[in-house]
Amino acid sequence: MAKIKVIVVDDSAVVRQVNRETLARASDIEVIAVCPDPVAALEKMRQQWPDVIVTDIEMPRMDGIAFLKKIMAERPTPTVVCSSLTQEGAATTMEALAAGALAIITKPALGVKQFLQDAGNDIVAAVRAAARANMGHVRTQARPRLAVDAVLAAKNPAGTGSSAMHDTTDKVVAIGTSTGGTQALEAVLTQLPRTSTGIVVVQHMPEKFTALFAQRLNSLCAMEVREAQDGDRVLPGRVLIAPGGRHMLLQRSGAQYLVQVRDGPVVNRHKPSVDVLFRSVAQVAGRNALGIIMTGMGDDGAHGMKEMHNAGALTVAEDESTCVVFGMPKVAIEMGGVAKVVPLDRIAQEIIAYGR
């Protein structure tokens, strides 16, 4: 099979060297060029176009945002952003995601070489996932269920036990997504009216990025969108985004739903984890919930969606035709936890119909 052709763009010689060496060790990846800035990269790309671009954002001659916008306008290409884990870096990287970048690899201000060497597997995995991405929809076998038990123990699902679990008119929509999810969530949430059912979301994203992501969505949506804090109510017209680096669980207080935000072990390589959220929704909301799993690499959320389905919740997966990466929805469908499969442009309609 043909190797994945990658161009690395970074003004740091150390980063270029480490990323080249890391990717070159993967037998299915070929680094065709390393460039100190986007202008040099574009010259190389005119000679040989890459399958995946790995790029920094803050660079000389042309900033990474302008570079991304140019690429996505002319020839959309899967792009992984390697960005600084700072408040300023997070703000810029959110612009990159909005411009079409698929994934974020964060790097510290100090000790970058050691960090990138330690994060080699993550970089390779991100490139492989990006190479499989369906860029036509990017806009300007399952592992055993064990990891989630460390955060939230399995119980009899709501709906198979006491009917008291359902003595409320409150409903909740739970959404899980990963690679390609920032654009997909924007496409869905901007279509929803202000009075839509309360929504809880896990989007795989590093710490410091989720607050800015929520702020961006809040500026675009009729619904209130914010990064979740422990004890926040799930209310009509409100979207709560799980904070990066912490899990989010649904809880019940009387007839009301609220969220618990807490630390814990990484689940399915992620924190926050979709499986953790979905399992909690299955346990406390049961048939009062709608679960939606969208574009993403891996299988996080598939087991939790099956538990929601078993508890009587309505469950929906994004169709392969619109997924950037058809990983998480595919596994959820194969496990039998999905009642309906719809393309991205119909997911908002499912949420509106459910609220009625």
Rank of each mutant, 00 (worst) to 15 (best):
E186I: 01
E186P: 09
E186W: 00
A187P: 03
A187V: 03
V188Q: 06
V188W: 07
V188Y: 00
T190I: 04
T190P: 05
Q191F: 07
Q191C: 11
Q191A: 05
Q191N: 02
P193D: 15
P193T: 12
P193K: 13
P193E: 15
R194S: 11
R194L: 08
R194D: 07
R194A: 15
T195E: 14
T195S: 15
S196Y: 02
S196Q: 06
T197S: 11
T197K: 11
T197Q: 11
G198A: 05
I199V: 14
V200E: 02
V200K: 10
V201P: 09
V202W: 04
V202H: 05
V202I: 01
Q203P: 07
Q203Y: 09
H204M: 08
H204L: 04
P206G: 10
E207H: 13
K208H: 10
K208N: 10
F209I: 13
T210S: 15
T210F: 06
A211L: 01
A211V: 04
A211M: 14
A211R: 13
L212H: 01
L212W: 10
L212V: 07
F213A: 05
F213C: 02
F213K: 09
A214C: 03
A214V: 00
A214K: 11
Q215L: 13
Q215V: 06
Q215P: 04
R216A: 09
N218Q: 07
N218T: 02
S219G: 06
S219A: 08
S219W: 05
C221T: 00
C221G: 05
A222Y: 04
A222D: 03
M223R: 08
M223Y: 09
E224P: 03
E224D: 15
R226T: 01
R226M: 00
E227T: 03
E227H: 03
A228M: 00
A228E: 09
Q229R: 15
Q229M: 07
Q229C: 11
D230G: 00
D230S: 00
G231M: 05
D232H: 13
D232E: 08
D232G: 10
D232Q: 11
R233M: 13
R233S: 09
V234W: 09
V234Y: 09
L235M: 14
L235I: 00
P236A: 13
P236N: 15
G237W: 14
G237Q: 12
G237E: 11
V239A: 14
V239D: 03
V239Y: 07
L240G: 08
L240P: 07
L240H: 02
L240Y: 00
I241S: 02
I241N: 00
I241L: 09
A242C: 01
A242I: 01
A242R: 15
P243G: 02
P243T: 07
P243S: 08
P243H: 11
G244K: 11
G244W: 06
G244Y: 04
G244M: 07
G244R: 12
G245W: 14
R246G: 06
R246L: 01
